[in-house]
Design a protein around this nucleic acid. Sequence first.
DNA 1: GTGTTGACCACAG
DNA 2: GCTGTGGCCAACA
Length: 105
Amino acid sequence: MSMKEFSHRVLNACSRIPKGKVTTYVEIARSLGKPKASRAVGQALKRNPDAPRIPCHRVVKSDGGVGGYGGADKKGIEKKIRLLRKENVVVDKRKIEIKNYFYRL
DNA sequence: GTGTTGACCACAG
DNA sequence: GCTGTGGCCAACA
């Protein structure tokens, strides 16, 4: 698998997450056969905030933290949270109950 | 080809 | 809760 396909598959996995569900950076990495590439998954998403309609706001950290979005600054995070809430996902203090919404790829 | 940088993770204090 | 450390891997300079 080429480096190029990696990011492509990340985005593809992202687009398969059902509305109202979330998955994690690790889970995506795992589904690609590279359980330890969570960090690289984040990179792929950052470079494609939208390509052009990828719901990357449904990807969160393993501990339920919302992770980043856009510049990873406060602005981006708030936007991500807003999108999640719009899908009936309860977000409390930049965190969610991962087990209630987890979607296994 | 070699660093450095992160939308990360796990574990230790 | 917090910070620090070591590890990971693709993208970038």
